[in-house]
């Protein structure tokens, strides 16, 4: 059985992500051990919280270096919400450097009156271009809960959310940065994560 490794670094709703992975018929292992992170087939970096605390926790547990090593070897890393934002170059929320794997800073939604708490559709054509559209429809919605948004990285495949229009998923050979919460997006969340694992990473 394929094992998906979830990084436990003291920030993130691990329980929900474990349930999601198990509902896909996969096995989830959870730990913050650098050796397990380096050797796992796919790792997921979840995240709910403040960027500064998250980064210092990652450094404290040696996870930061383990993830950098994985990325150098171009092995699959999935970031969810805050986990995805940490892949950016600069995090305005905490005025600190991120991993730098995605071009641009992570900045607040400009001119947006409130936090982006709610359900958004994704641009269906972009989803199709990213080969993530299997079993989804143009009206499929996903749950977002954030104020800060990833910068524009034209080097990567991107699926854009509508209302507001922001990068929702970045994909390259190794990296998958998901701004929304698939683990909280009901049936559609399961489908899109399955598509990432099966159609993008070929598990």
């Amino acid at each position: 059985m394929t094992v998906i490794h979830l990084i436990d670094y003291g920030t993130g709703n691990i329980g929900s992500v474990v349930s999601l992975i198990e509902s896909l018929g996969l096995f989830a292992s959870v730990s913050g051990s650098p050796s397990e992170i380096i050797n796992a087939k796919v790792v997921i970096l979840p995240g709910v919280g403040a960027a500064g605390v998250a980064l210092s926790n990652l450094r404290l547990h040696g996870v930061y270096d383990a993830l950098c090593k994985r990325y150098e070897e171009m092995r699959p890393i999935v970031g969810i919400c805050l986990g995805a934002q940490l892949f950016g170059e600069y995090l305005h929320e905490s005025s600190c450097q991120g991993f730098g794997w995605l071009k641009g800073g992570v900045a607040p939604l400009s001119d947006y009156p409130f936090y982006n708490n709610g359900w958004c559709r994704l641009d269906y054509d972009a989803l199709k271009n990213a080969s993530l559209a299997r079993a989804l429809t143009p009206s499929s919605t996903f749950f977002f809960n954030h104020k800060y948004v990833m910068g524009l990285d034209t080097r990567k495949k991107v699926a854009v959310a509508q209302r507001p229009e922001i990068p929702a998923i970045y994909l390259d050979e190794a990296l998958c940065a998901i701004q929304f919460h698939p683990e909280k997006s009901q049936h559609n969340g399961r489908i899109i994560l399955r598509n990432v694992f099966e159609d993008h990473y070929g598990l």
């Binding site: 947006y112 409130f114 948004v149 209302r163 507001p164 229009e165 922001i166």
Partner: peptide, 13 residues
């Protein structure tokens, strides 16, 4: 940036 500046909200809950 033009896209981001649009004040269009997510679906209300």
């Amino acid at each position: 940036f033009a896209m981001c500046s649009k004040i269009i909200m997510a679906y209300k809950r």
